[in-house]
Simulated scan of single mutants.
Amino acid sequence: MKTIILVRHGKSSWKYDVGDRQRPLKTRGLNDIKLVAKEYIKFGELPEKIFSSPAKRAYQTCKIFIKTCELDQKEVTIIEELYDFNGRNVINFIKSLEDTINSIMIFGHNHAFTSISNIFGDRFIENLPTSGLVKINFEIDNWKSLEKGKTELIIVPKDLR
């Protein structure tokens, strides 16, 4: 079995004159990802590998999530291809993973994560909101065989406030 946990970055700030990759999180984004991480901890399943988009808002989200879940010992790998908005690069990255890895968590962007959730999960999501988390399980032995799986968990901040 393989598991993918997708976490969309927190709400970002537009008040700074910086490029898209450098946009930081807003205070709401910081608070929302802590709520989602605390809720996720209740399910007790931590990923083997954690990957993040290089965008500041995604990596900040990742660091906050890891700290909140007390996963400081986990190594995060920043992957250029995860700075993706349509999902093709994320899917290609997932399909290229080593089969010895069974569970991953990816911090990234929309519309990629909404699309991937709908392509591979069995529950329709109109839009994965900022700080939203989706966990999908797959009855496969290798990542290249990625096919329709079962959406096990959806956590969105507005349900936790």
Score class of each variant (00 low, 15 high):
residue 105 M to G: 02
residue 105 M to L: 15
residue 44 G to P: 00
residue 74 K to F: 12
residue 48 E to C: 08
residue 148 K to T: 11
residue 39 E to S: 10
residue 112 A to E: 04
residue 51 F to L: 00
residue 50 I to Q: 07
residue 140 I to Y: 09
residue 116 I to V: 13
residue 153 L to H: 11
residue 37 A to S: 13
residue 82 L to N: 07
residue 38 K to Q: 14
residue 148 K to P: 00
residue 40 Y to V: 02
residue 58 A to Q: 09
residue 79 I to T: 12
residue 140 I to W: 09
residue 118 N to S: 08
residue 91 I to L: 08
residue 52 S to K: 03
residue 46 L to G: 01
residue 65 F to Q: 04
residue 24 P to E: 07
residue 91 I to F: 07
residue 10 G to L: 03
residue 80 E to Y: 11
residue 43 F to C: 01
residue 32 D to Q: 12
residue 106 I to Y: 11
residue 80 E to S: 14
residue 15 K to C: 01
residue 106 I to K: 05
residue 101 I to T: 14
residue 79 I to E: 15
residue 131 S to T: 12
residue 129 P to D: 12
residue 98 E to Y: 10
residue 74 K to S: 11
residue 137 N to L: 10
residue 152 E to A: 01
residue 151 T to V: 02
residue 144 K to R: 00
residue 66 I to L: 14
residue 95 K to S: 08
residue 48 E to F: 00
residue 65 F to V: 08
residue 90 V to A: 14
residue 119 I to R: 09
residue 124 F to L: 13
residue 83 Y to C: 07
residue 29 G to D: 11
residue 123 R to K: 15
residue 57 R to Q: 12
residue 38 K to S: 04
residue 159 D to T: 10
residue 45 E to Q: 13
residue 94 I to C: 06
residue 33 I to A: 02
residue 145 S to P: 03
residue 121 G to I: 03
residue 122 D to A: 02
residue 11 K to Y: 11
residue 31 N to Q: 13
residue 47 P to I: 04
residue 85 F to M: 12
residue 119 I to T: 10
residue 99 D to L: 03
residue 121 G to K: 07
residue 35 L to E: 08
residue 101 I to K: 06
residue 33 I to P: 09
residue 153 L to M: 09
residue 24 P to W: 10
residue 153 L to F: 09
residue 51 F to W: 04
residue 49 K to S: 08
residue 29 G to C: 10
residue 28 R to W: 02
residue 70 E to D: 14
residue 80 E to P: 04
residue 6 L to D: 01
residue 28 R to I: 15
residue 79 I to K: 14
residue 111 H to L: 00
residue 4 I to Q: 05
residue 16 Y to W: 04
residue 71 L to E: 06
residue 134 V to M: 01
residue 48 E to M: 11
residue 86 N to V: 15
residue 34 K to G: 02
residue 26 K to R: 15
residue 123 R to V: 14
